[in-house]
Nucleic acid binder design. Structure first.
Length: 596
RNA sequence: GCCCCGGUAGCUCAGUUGGAUAGAGCAACUGCCUUCUAAGCAGUAGGUCAUGGGUUCGAGUCCCGUCCGGGGUACCA
């Protein structure tokens, strides 16, 4: 059925009949014909020269002749150098269009009985500061890859692990107690996560001053960092928290509650969500138990000072600490506990962690440790490692105030979108609410596309001065094209045009055929995006599709086309493109406006 | 030191897993709105794919060396 498979099979037969050669799977290479040449699909003939013992041109001619005679939809061919370009008949492309048009979720695989259950962990915030641009990349990637995995037929559980305990939380708690004057988000009007974050900064300010003061008295830096009253007080709070001191636990709950309220707003604005949330305060003890079990079973070992370690020298790594000498747990311990809980809560086939690439080593170790602990699923974890977002000044650092705050950035983008729309006079006849909704859609579209179009593995640069574009290779460009198509389709409806009538068309223009080819590639893009964990593949596909469409749109009239069949063909073509854009961009969490 | 990742146009990024003359957007310059939305379309200019070797019919893509940048290697998370 599929054209590539058809050609593949026929080529295999041709090679056998012509040269008595049975090619391996990979030796038959098909690719899309470059635009500068005539043809649609190209067969690379170089690999066959050894067997044909003829020139590339002659070999191409012979195979081309065979394919033309044996496959009905191959209408012609030409050979340039070692490339055999095959011309596929228009009926094939029309069939592709109709297939896509009639399939609502064209290119996507729906869930079935043998779907795998994939759990995707993303976001993973600390509860001591608000979300910033780095978190935005994480959240967008996590959400998008979940959607892409779903589109590839998987069942997905989106999960978040909240780092809600530890010394950093206690720092904010102490600062609030000390200098907070009982301030709350309610009476101050400050968003909860920002309020708590402010006290985290406040803590650092005092802490630094204390260190400087102590060093004046001749104390070493290290000693001063240890002796400063603030840090002592924070540690005391942590001890009290671990001892379940009622007042401390209460304060911890209250302040974390403020943060969660704040996060909820940011998540809602970003359009991301979770099916199940885990809290480290509930998983770290499980991790501890597992480590102690591991020690008892001789998988791990204890040093003289009481700390527990894993020896990974046999795996080419070094030794890794799992429990401190005072018995408290570390990051790794918590991840072991969280993993165990997840696998007992769900029958997970695959675990995906969306975490920055600075954790590459951590996850390499985690997989080995889980395996050593006897969890067969340990090896199957996948670390979806992504690069950092850098500013022109370099890496973002919370303490140095060089972070781009998530909430601020979103609001700035909305302001730009609003101003731009008003300047262009675009949404004048929409209600105020609808216009606002659209500004937001465009702003988020710009932000999300900007981040998701780049290869997740690579570090990316964000320049706040230059801001994010709304023209060119951007989210709004794609949204605009969608809105334009919708506008045409609305008018077609008003004219009572029937899109189901037959669309035989005598000739396909170059642009039309290019569009059809592009449409046929959407399923490939979805599959590839899933295999490579890459929303960027979807983003780039949508951009190419939309660019192609805009050229078509510019060169051809649709509604004014006098030939009814051609007009219907173009309407169906447009409807199909708009559907693919919408579905594709949905995989990126980007919404399409009906008007803009 | 050791380990991992990266280096493509002035800037931000693609490059179909080794294929044809390396592509977009931004910025600059030039055209196109009486016609379905100009957030668009068309064009000009911009490249020693960091660098030196190697593998082969063919290398931005694979291998080795060098230079530059980032990350990791913590009783931080």
């Amino acid at each position: 059925m599929n054209i590539e498979a058809l050609i593949h099979k026929a080529t295999s037969k041709a090679l056998n009949e012509l040269y008595g050669f049975n090619p391996g799977e990979k030796q038959i290479q098909l690719q899309n014909t470059r635009k500068d040449f005539e043809g649609d699909i190209t067969l690379v003939v170089f690999p066959f020269l050894k067997f044909s013992k003829k020139s590339p041109e002659k070999t191409g001619e012979e195979i081309g002749e065979y394919l033309k005679n044996n496959i009905e939809i191959v209408e012609g061919f030409n050979v340039i150098k070692g490339f055999l370009n095959l011309v596929i008949g228009k009926s094939y492309w029309i069939d592709v269009l109709l297939g896509a048009y009639r399939t609502e979720k064209f290119g996507m695989v729906s869930e079935s009985d043998d779907s795998k259950l994939v759990m995707v962990e993303y976001s993973s915030p600390n509860t001591n500061k608000p979300l910033h641009l780095g978190h935005i990349r994480n959240n967008l990637l996590g959400y998008s890859i979940s959607e892409i995995l779903k589109a590839n037929g998987n069942k997905v559980v989106k999960t978040n692990i909240v780092n809600d305990r530890g010394i950093h939380i206690c720092k904010s708690m102490y600062a609030w107690k000390q200098w907070g004057d009982g301030k709350t988000p309610g009476d101050s009007g400050v968003k909860g996560d920002h309020l708590v974050g402010d006290y985290y900064v406040e803590f650092d300010k005092h802490y630094k001053a204390e260190i400087a003061e102590l060093m004046e008295t001749g104390m070493s830096k290290e000693e001063a960092e240890n002796q400063a009253p603030s840090i002592q007080a924070a540690r005391e709070l942590l001890r009290k928290w671990e001892a379940r001191d009622e007042e401390t636990v209460q304060l911890w709950k209250t302040m974390n509650g403020w943060v969660y309220d704040g996060f909820d707003i940011t998540y809602k604005n970003l359009g991301v969500d979770f099916d199940k949330i885990y809290y480290e305060s509930e998983t770290y003890l499980v991790g501890k138990e597992e480590v102690m079990r591991g020690e008892k079973e001789g998988v791990f070992f204890r040093k003289e000072d009481g700390s527990v370690w894993a020896d990974l020298t046999g795996d080419g790594l070094d030794q890794k600490i799992l429990l401190r000498s005072d018995g408290t747990s570390v990051y790794m311990t918590q991840d072991i506990g969280t993993a165990k809980m997840r696998f007992s809560d769900f029958s997970i086939d695959k675990m995906v962690y969306v975490v920055g690439n600075e954790q590459n080593y951590h996850f390499q170790v985690l997989a080995i440790l889980l395996d050593k602990l006897g969890f067969s699923w340990g090896k199957s974890l996948y670390h979806f490692s992504y690069g950092m977002v850098e500013l022109p000044s370099g890496k973002m650092k919370s303490r140095e105030g060089t972070v781009v705050d998530a909430d601020d950035l979103i609001e700035d983008m909305v302001d730009v979108a609003r101003k731009m729309s008003v300047d262009l006079g675009k949404l004048d006849n929409l209600s105020k609410e609808e216009a606002e909704r659209t500004y937001r859609m465009i702003a988020l579209g710009a932000l999300k596309y900007f981040i998701l179009k780049v290869d997740p593995k690579k570090n990316m640069l964000f320049n706040p001065e230059e801001s994010i574009d709304f023209n060119g290779n951007t989210g709004p460009f794609i949204q605009y094209t969608y809105a334009r198509i919708r506008s045409v389709l609305r008018k077609a409806e008003e004219m009572n045009l029937d899109l189901n009538s037959n669309i035989e068309t005598d000739s396909l223009s170059f642009k039309e055929k290019e569009l059809l080819k592009r449409i046929s590639l959407f399923p490939v893009a979805v599959k590839e995006a899933g295999e490579n964990y890459s929303p960027a593949i979807i983003a780039n596909y949508c951009y190419e599709l939309v660019k192609e469409y805009n050229q078509f749109y510019h060169d051809h009239s649709i509604l004014a086309e006098p030939n009814e069949q051609v007009r219907n063909f173009r309407l169906i073509l447009s409807a199909t493109v708009s559907n693919i854009i919408k579905n594709g961009m949905n995989l990126l969490g980007i919404l399409m406006p009906e008007r803009m």
